[in-house]
Design a protein around this nucleic acid. Sequence first.
RNA 1: CGGGGAGUAGCGCAGCCCGGUAGCGCAUUCGCUUUGGGAGCGAAGGGUCGCAGGUUCAAAUCCUGUCUCCCCGACCA
Length: 488
Amino acid sequence: MAKRITNRADDYSQWYLDVIKEAKLADHSPVRGCMVIRPNGFSLWENMRSVLDTMFKQTGHENAYFPLFIPKSFLSKEAQHVEGFAKECAVITHSRLKSVDGGVEVDPESRLDEELIVRPTSETIIWDSYRGWIQSYRDLPILINQWANVVRWEMRTRLFLRTMEFLWQEGHTAHATEQEAVEETLQMLEVYRTFAEEFMAMPVVTGVKTASERFAGAVDTYCIESLMQDGKALQAGTSHFLGQNFAKAFDVKFQDQDGEHKYVWATSWGVSTRLIGGLIMTHSDDNGLVLPPKLAPIQVVIVPIYKNEEQKSKALYYAEPLINELKAGGVSVKLDDRDNFKPGWKFAEHEAQGTPIRIAIGPRDIENGNLEVARRDKLEKNIIPFEGSALYITELLETIQTNLFETAKKRREENTQHANSYDEFKVMIEAGGFVYAHWDGTEETETRVKEETKATIRCIPLHGDETPGECMVSGKPSKKKVLFARSY
RNA sequence: CGGGGAGUAGCGCAGCCCGGUAGCGCAUUCGCUUUGGGAGCGAAGGGUCGCAGGUUCAAAUCCUGUCUCCCCGACCA
């Protein structure tokens, strides 16, 4: 068999790129750091989007859309925010081109009076709108989400994990009280955790970011952190409690029941196409992509095996009731009846693309009243009776979903360690994986660890070991262990 | 943005050092045989050699610039 995908053990970065290429998820674009998301990748994103959108609606949110362009002056209103994003903004300075012997150039006369920023995130332009929408406590809360693209001028990019333009959703909510805003922040963190674990089958640790890792303009940044197969951590989603920072910057006040004018409390939260990178690096293997059934664009592929037209018709006829029954049960089925590829080719291709279940139907199966069922996660094949196979398939999809989560969780547990000294910590970090250790809470210690080991504090876990101790570096008191790792 | 590597047919590569009609494998098209893990034989089509300049009688090859990708670093909600 021609090996098109580099083994993970040989070159993990190359493996990641090979999987994306072979699964036809995305291409590099002519523009540095941008990607073309191909149908296979986009339908995966559509499925993720659809599930998340439903979860957002169920928690009371509405979708809206705000402009791609943000006046430069808006970005400078919140001091921390501008500091965080200033270095990675695309700036629009002109509005026209003009023809110059065969080509075009920027028309210098079209220079904009005020430059526009291509949104790196939308807090500023949204809060400018919210000022006009909010007068009284009766106008609150505002619970809005938008699906959009954003641009961040990154130095170094990787498909899905860090691209200059990416797709995401950003929720922006406004509340009358601090408590309500904090509850919203945590609620959405929980939505992300649920989505990651139950749909992506990707176990995550929920926690709070340290000050240095916090979103620019947030009071607290909560996150879900997951562990990839190469032992590096991936921040998979963030939910921010913004306090009154943006309300103050954009002068958004409301009159409360007591007649007082007060600043509004805010949150924002988002996940992006980066999740696809996380999905790839959580489950996929040396044969290609592995997708959790709940998000797979195609859950079951049926490959007929035949030597002639007669056998082909028989196979298709044999498959038809099963296809109908599966479709009726909400299963996404594809019949791969292409004549220009042999079964072996199709098997390899569907494996590379991560289809959870493959069914083969050949003359032998038809004769014996059977099916060959292969599961992508374990690369196992089984012959099962045709009778009752739809139920078997449906249950197998659930089994695969569960197995992927359990396997990923087990891997994470096997690669999670607790360090009791800095020396021990260094060895553990070098080996990869999550390392829990005591930290004195100072930025000095955090920076020193980062400089010496390249590990960062991924988060201060919300549901971890609460035992106090002594900082592994300084020996000063530590309230509880925090989570360290090298990260993407 | 610094260091290293790469860009030649849809994909993977050779050719470059030492300038002289652009090649190989896979894929594609046609024909026949095949089809239960990436089929075989025969024939055919397909490339402004990333792009832009320069040197030269002549540039894929030498020189300069530039774009993109990969790795390491710096940077990064």
